[in-house]
Each structure stands twice: as C-alpha cells, then as structure tokens.
Design a protein around this nucleic acid. Structure first.
Lengths: 224, 224
DNA sequence: AGGACGCCATCTGTATGCAAGTTGTAAGGA
DNA sequence: TCCTTACAACTTGCATACAGATGGCGTCCT
C-alpha cells in the first residue's frame, strides 16, 4: 500500500541543512510518526529538489539517530524498542542531573537570576492550565540548565538525546496534575541551584526527569 | 600548497559505511591530523569511487562530530578548541562514572568475572612496559565497563565521545609511570564493582578519566 | 610601490541517468 | 486452497555532468 496521504510541498530554502532541520522537526513534532518510511523520491518532490540532497539529509538524520537506515531500504523514522526507550530516558535523567549539578557550581549570577525569573514566570501558566505554553516554558527552562553547565559536549549530548526522546514525550503535560508537579520539581532544582547546592540540584533534576519518563512511557505505549 | 603526501589507494569494499569507518579510523588513529582538509576528489580517488558516496560519508562524519563542515568548503578534521577539549574530557569522566556506577549495580556474574580476568591479565603488560598492548587492553577494559552499564544510549554516547577524544589521547601511556598508575586505578574500579559498591565505582572511574585528561591535555598542546 | 579589482582555477552543491537490489503480485503446481 | 516461483514495478546506490561559489593570482590604476 502506498502512502496515499497527500503532503504539501515545502518551500524552505532547500539547502540540505534546512531539510535536515525540517525533517527533524517533523519527526520531533510528530508530523511523521515512528515507523513511517521516508522514501527519497517523495521527499525530493516535497522539497522540490533532487534526490541527492535528500539522501545526504537522510544520512545525517541517520547519524543523529532520528531515522534508521538499512542497505537498499527506505529510511524509517526510528521506532525504538521499549528497552532502548528506557535507556534513553535513563540517560536523559543522568544528563539532566549532570547539568543541574554543574549549573549549581558554575552558573553566573545573571544566569541564576534569569533561570529563577523564567521559573517564577511559569507559575501563572500552571494556574491557567496552559499546557502548550507551559511546554514551551519547560523547554526553555531545561535549555537554561543545559547551558548553565558550561560544558559544550554535555550540551551537545543532552540536546541530541532530548531530540530523540521528543516524539515519545509529546503528551506528557496532558497528565492530570502534571503541570503543578512539574512546577514543584522545577522549584526544587532552582532553589538548589540558587543555593549552589550541587548535590541537591543534581538529585532533584535526576528525579524530575525520571518521573517524567515513567509517565511518558505509559503514554508512548498507550498511543500506539 | 597542495597535499603532496602520496596516499595509497584504499580497496575496502567501497560501501559508504565502510568508508565512514575507514576515514573515522584514520582520524582516530592519527593517520589524518586535526585541521587537515579532506577534499572530496582526493578521497574519491583513494577509495576508487565517485564523489557522491564520499560526500555522504563526510556528511555522516560531520554529524558524528569528527569533521567540521562549512558551506562550499572542504571538510576539515575537527580541531577542537582547548575549552571544548576540556569539556569533552569532563563529559567523558562523567560518562565513565555513570558506566562504572551502573556496572556495579547491573553487571552479571559472568561480566564481573570477565572484567576481573581482563584486568588481572594486564598486570604482566604493566611489568613488561608493553605500552601498545596495554593500550589495547585498556580499550577492552573500558568497553567492558560501557557494556556492563546495560544502557544502550549511554553506551552510544560514551563510545562516540571516546572516538572524538582518541586523537588527543594517543600518547597517554608514554608518560612515565602512567601504566602502573592506570593499573592501580583500574584495580580500584574493579574492586568496587565486584563489591557492587556503586558510589565507589563511579568515583573511581570518574577520577581515573579525569587524571588521564590532565595528562593528555598537556600532550595534546605539546604535540601541536 | 601598494592596493584594488577582476579573471581563472578549483572545489563544492545539485541534477540526472543507469545499474542493482527489493518487494509485491500473479500465475502455476501440489 | 495454499505454497512456490518468477516477473515486474519501484526504490535505493552510485557515477557523471553541470552550475555556483570561493580563493588565489595577476594586472592595472593610483
């Protein structure tokens, strides 16, 4: 059976980098679902380029782990096994813990203040139950943690891991009461960082992610 | 000035994956040095293929972080800054710590036994001062730690990080007394893992790598 | 003599064509 | 009826050709 679903043509600037980002976004945002095939010709026509740059984009996405590639087979949006998913969430928790710990030690005064402001500002989103907006805030909040660690390589790893987990985490804030609990957990992290309590920050961040992982694992399997 | 140095033709099987591995090996083993340009035409003739698969291989290496790519420029073996190098070593220490900690918790009896055997067997290499052989043992030893963590994603991250650090770590066992000290540090890690003492294993592994990092940083800069 | 402009060589980026491999399907036989 | 097998359509892998960009070098002007 063919992919009958019609896709609109995408007119970015058609450089390979932009295609990579565009396809990655589609995967991360769920416009393309895990397991779905990405054949080169369709993508080429969607982006209005030839197959050559598409192939390069797919290979890059493969190296990033977002799509799987086998010889003479279409690229496929990676459909990770449950154990691999678990390993990614666990790794994510470890990485977040590292970032929070290092942030507690290394953040500048300005960074600490900015983090706290960002965090406090999200309280009204919790009260309003604005899931979408809170999700955006959440991304920003965590990105600040990653940057605050002042370690480029850790930043790279955590960013990539987050990208690969994104497809499985989409519905996390739909869980009843998750917003409020998330805020609480952020609060512990922020407090520890302001205090420069590295151990507490690391632990708080670790469990924050670990909790989300449990919740999302349920959703990921339920959504299939 | 042209790259006058003659390179022999490489006759692998000429699939892109093999080219990626071959080029990655050259970078990791130092056959190609950081900062060196990798122009597509030369590589194509060396591998006896056209530019197309070479381009894909280079893009993949770029995604892996082994080479840098800018628009309309040759790929360049990544010449990391000192701070980035430091960040990678720090990340490596964190990852090793995680692996050792998880290994202490999760290794099977067989894995623990194999690790210990591998370790004990290396003692004679220390006494013989066999740097090359000890380096091979060292790789094997650490790989066992990575596998023992039973976490695919962590394994992936630590493996990739190690690959990117390899060019800067080549001479590490040339330092006087380093072999014996390395053995001692391995011993602490093994002991902790056998005891299933996660915290001790993590700390021992962390400092083991952190120490190596200091030593190698010296060498990396001295080698320029 | 020094600097600026422009041309040329060279390399990267993309398109297209062809060969090889894979998958789905249909026909034939057990 | 079900399984096997062969063929056909389609998709990927690679090579080649062409277009666009960049950097170096020489020339010309000041």
């Amino acid at each position: 059976m063919k992919q009958v679903r019609r896709r609109e043509v995408i007119r970015t600037g058609t450089t390979v980098e932009q295609m990579v980002r565009a396809i990655a976004d589609m995967i991360v945002t769920g416009a393309i679902l895990p397991g779905e095939k990405l054949d080169e010709i369709s993508l080429a026509s969607r982006f209005e380029v030839s197959r050559t740059p598409v192939r390069e984009a797919l290979r890059e996405l493969g190296a990033m782990g977002l799509v799987g590639r086998e010889p003479n087979r279409s690229a496929v949006v990676t459909n990770v096994t449950e154990t691999h998913l678990h390993s990614m969430f666990e790794a994510m928790a470890e990485l977040e813990g590292i970032c929070a710990r290092l942030s507690a030690e290394r953040m500048t005064v300005d960074e600490r203040r900015a983090l706290e402001l960002e965090h406090r500002g999200s309280m009204r989103l919790v009260h309003a139950g604005a899931e979408e907006d809170y999700a955006a805030h959440n991304t920003e909040f965590h990105t600040r943690l990653y940057r605050g660690a002042h370690n480029d390589h850790v930043f790279e790893m955590v960013t990539q891991t987050r990208a690969r987990l994104a497809p499985f985490r989409r519905a996390q804030f739909r869980l009843p009461g998750r917003l409020a609990r998330s805020y609480e957990e952020h609060d512990q992290i922020v407090t520890a960082i302001i205090r420069a309590d590295a151990v507490a920050a690391g632990q708080a961040a670790y469990s924050h992610v670990a909790i989300v992982s449990d919740a999302s694992a349920v959703f990921a399997t339920a959504g299939e």
